[in-house]
């Protein structure tokens, strides 16, 4: 008994330390973004700012076009792309639960095939740019990720847990398949839709590679690409603001601005995250159901 109490205490100590390790870096990002640039140059980064200074945010908000445009673009493609993918994948997942659907086998084979083997980055890139003309084209953010085999199978697994007699009786009452889906399946599958929606939004919001590969037009950069350019190349920040001739005379607080921009990039995740917590256990339990 005594041993097991000590064990539990040990577990709590482990997790409390882990919690600090997991959360502290995000808190330091916030702290640095509201620090004074000179303090950082002199004393280095720290969790508690020596003095609070919002200069970074003032400068960013003064000329918000580049970042604001990237945020607007990324948020729009995230929402539109996720809703499209959810619709398309759940429709397929739904019909794959029907034993009398004649194309069930071939489509399932197609899904498995796409999971087993993929063309790889170069053939995909060349086909996407040469055949579909996705270079500098906003459609590249929306279309290529649409038919996701894992998502379809996840939906199918979840839907096959719904009692078929419910759908059957609605069918006999004259409802068509779309109505059955909207009125019976959807309300019973909120958890899986919610988790897939959330995951879809986050992965699109965090997408970096697509802009790197497909975009040369600055207006089409997503937020992560803009962030990355700000981190790896301090000149990007300076140039962007000096170009407008407004800040050339004062010192630009590059470090604090970087982290202010970084925080703007993380913010949607921080806001959405707590809302989604309650769906996690359910959604992930589905993910672990064996095929």
């Amino acid at each position: 008994m005594k041993n097991s109490k000590m064990f539990i205490t040990g577990v709590h100590i482990f997790f409390i330390m882990a919690t600090v390790v997991f959360l502290a870096p995000v808190l330091i990002v916030i702290a640095v973004s509201i620090s004074n640039e000179n303090d950082i140059m002199q004393y280095g980064f720290s969790l508690i700012p020596r003095s609070i200074d919002f200069t970074a945010y003032q400068i960013i908000l003064k000329d918000f076009t580049v970042i604001g445009r990237a945020i607007l673009l990324t948020a729009s493609v995230a929402v539109v792309g996720t809703i499209l993918a959810l619709t398309v994948n759940s429709l397929l997942g739904y019909v794959l639960t029907k034993p009398d659907f004649i194309f069930r086998k071939p489509i399932t084979l197609m899904l498995i095939g796409s999971m087993l083997f993929n063309a790889g980055l170069i053939p995909t890139f060349v086909i996407n740019t040469r055949v579909y003309h996705f270079g500098n084209n906003i459609l590249v953010y929306l279309l290529p990720g649409l038919g996701g085999a894992w998502a379809v199978i996840l939906f199918r697994t979840f839907f096959s847990g719904i009692s078929p007699s419910l759908m059957e009786s609605a069918y006999i009452d004259g409802a068509n398949e779309l109505q059955i889906m909207a009125k019976i399946v959807l309300p019973m599958s909120k958890a899986i839709y919610a988790i897939q929606f959330f995951m879809g939004i986050i992965s699109r919001w965090n997408n970096f590679q697509t802009s790197l590969l497909y975009m040369t037009d600055e207006k089409l950069y997503t937020i992560q690409y803009v962030l990355q350019r700000n981190l790896t190349d301090a000149k990007t920040i300076k140039q962007a603001y000096e170009a407008f001739g407004m800040m050339a005379d004062i010192n630009i607080p590059i470090m604090t601005m970087r982290y202010a921009i970084c925080l703007i990039g993380i913010l949607p995740v921080l806001l959405l995250f707590p809302l989604m917590q309650k769906f996690f256990s359910k959604g992930i339990a589905v993910g672990s159901v064996k095929e």
Partner: peptide
């Protein structure tokens, strides 16, 4: 849920 870009800032 953080992107690798944000993590590279961290």
């Amino acid at each position: 849920f953080l992107s690798w870009v944000s993590i590279s800032f961290i």
